[in-house]
Write a protein that binds this DNA or RNA. Structure first.
Length: 418
RNA sequence: GUGAGCGUGGCCAAGUUGGUUAAGGCGCCAGGUUGUGGCCCUGGAGAUCGUGGGUUCAAAUCCCAUCGCUCACCCCA
């Protein structure tokens, strides 16, 4: 038997309501902030991600789905959303639009990882990017958008964590400082950190290993070693966040996995601690557009894991609002009535009423059971009497009320129901 | 890539000191008299017990291998 590939899932009809609940809210909030939707290809030139995310990151080194197509082009299924959006910004000359350009996307993301709770090989992200403005006010706007969306969805007790990792002026000096500090503790840190010390020093800070905690606790803080412009930006960010009333905590250990981040990095986490818990992660990437051959252009954005949102909605007992649409089942008795039912079903749908016609001939009891089973709100019954009189039985299943309605009035009656 | 747990009908599962037709529940289908649901009652369909091999007179139950799922690490949304 075939199965969905490892780390992928089917989103069945029964799940669609919860998905719509999230994606619709995301769309509405994004558009209320003036963001326009962008859809980019599922795959891109592999080099886009190597240059954008960074060659020595785990994502690019071992988590991409990369393949050569029949024309020998090397392509990669997108492992994140930002690089593609920036490529599109450059390709379509969006620097000629009023800056910043505000964009959002909802799309599948692919990473070859071992699946576990809250982590899939194909997952979905809602993300936004504001490209073309370096002001900390935009940082606050982006963060607020994410926060308001989670609020709108009904999640509570979330924590917003922020940090600044500096820019190309001040970060190298800080990284050196951090390395020097760790050089004095090589014997007490874990193996992973020995490796991180060489390969990705900033990640030393979010090691979860027990033995490394004392070392992390005394490590120098990035925000204490920012250059003047970064310092100002960092201070302004907090001012703006306070202005819009977002509660935040400064997390000196917060760093992110992509090379392109500069200055502001942030994440939003649910109250239950655990692995894979981050539901929103993002930051500023002022050097990325230039890295991708565009003019030097600042930008900031975030990614939000939709599956993780859904897990937290379930965990917090938030249910998707019922959509309350009318749905009619057309029941029939006898061959002639069935013919009429097929015709009526077609007319109902063309008139804007969702309708299913019971297939085959079954007892009325069975047809009624079927109608409730598929979630019909109403039932129309056609038998010999109805064919003769032209008045059909219309039953409201929830109210258990039934009446005779002239055939020609069925569409208008149902359209005004609910 | 590393470590741990688990794989019995569509779903949830009982059964593991090896031994007659592999429980039960949900769901599905039908019926409970003549054209009416959601509750209830009755009946029915549906499993080569993940797969392959081995031990044995006999294996869902023991052994080996393999695949898959889940969780944790790594990393990230």
């Amino acid at each position: 038997m075939f199965r969905a590939p490892r780390g992928t899932t089917d989103i069945l009809p029964a799940d669609q309501k919860r998905w719509r609940h999230v994606t619709e809210a995301a769309r509405q909030v994004a558009e209320s902030f003036g963001y326009g939707r962008i859809d980019t290809p599922l795959f891109e030139d592999s080099k886009l991600f190597v240059r954008g995310i960074g060659e020595v990151t785990d994502i690019v080194e071992k988590e991409t789905y990369t393949f050569e197509d029949r024309g020998n082009d090397l392509l990669t299924l997108r492992p994140e959303g930002t690089a593609s959006v920036c490529r599109a910004y450059i390709e379509h000359g969006m620097h000629n639009q009023p800056q910043p350009v505000r964009l959002y996307y909802i799309c599948p993301i692919f990473r070859y990882e071992r699946p576990q709770s809250g982590r899939y090989r194909q997952h979905h992200q809602f993300g936004i990017e504001a490209i073309g403005d370096a002001s900390a006010a935009i940082d606050a706007e982006v963060i607020e958008l994410g926060w308001r969306l989670l609020e709108k969805l009904g999640l509570h007790d979330l924590a917003l964590r922020i940090n600044s990792i500096g820019d190309k002026e001040c970060r190298p000096a800080y990284v050196r400082l951090l390395q020097d500090y760790y050089d004095g503790h090589v014997n007490t840190i874990c193996e992973d950190c020995q490796r991180r010390l060489q390969k990705n020093p900033l990640r030393l800070l979010d090691c979860k290993n027990e033995q490394c905690q004392p070392v992390i606790a005394k490590a120098p803080h990035g925000v204490d070693h920012l250059c003047e412009p970064c310092r100002t930006h960092w201070d302004e960010l907090q001012t703006f966040l306070n202005a819009v009333g977002l509660p935040f905590e400064i997390d000196n250990r917060l760093v992110r996995g992509f090379d392109y981040y500069t200055r502001t990095v942030f994440e939003i986490v649910p109250p239950v601690e655990g692995s894979q818990s981050t539901i929103v992660g993002g930051g500023r990437y002022d050097g990325l557009i230039e890295e991708l051959d565009g003019n030097p252009t600042p930008g900031i954005g975030f990614g939000m894991g939709i599956e993780r949102i859904l897990v937290n909605l379930d965990r917090q007992g938030v249910e998707a609002p019922s959509e309350g649409d009318v749905k009619v089942a057309v029941l029939h008795l006898g061959a002639e009535a069935m013919n009429e039912a097929v015709r009526l079903g077609s007319e109902l749908r063309q008139g804007g009423v969702a309708a299913v016609v019971v297939a085959g001939e079954r007892s009325l009891k069975s047809q009624m059971r079927y109608a409730s089973g598929v979630g019909a709100t109403h039932v129309i019954i056609i038998g010999e009497d109805e064919l003769r009189s032209g008045e059909f039985q219309l039953r409201d299943l929830a109210a258990s009320q039934q009446s005779s309605v002239r055939r020609d009035d069925l569409v208008s009656t149902l359209l005004s129901a609910h």
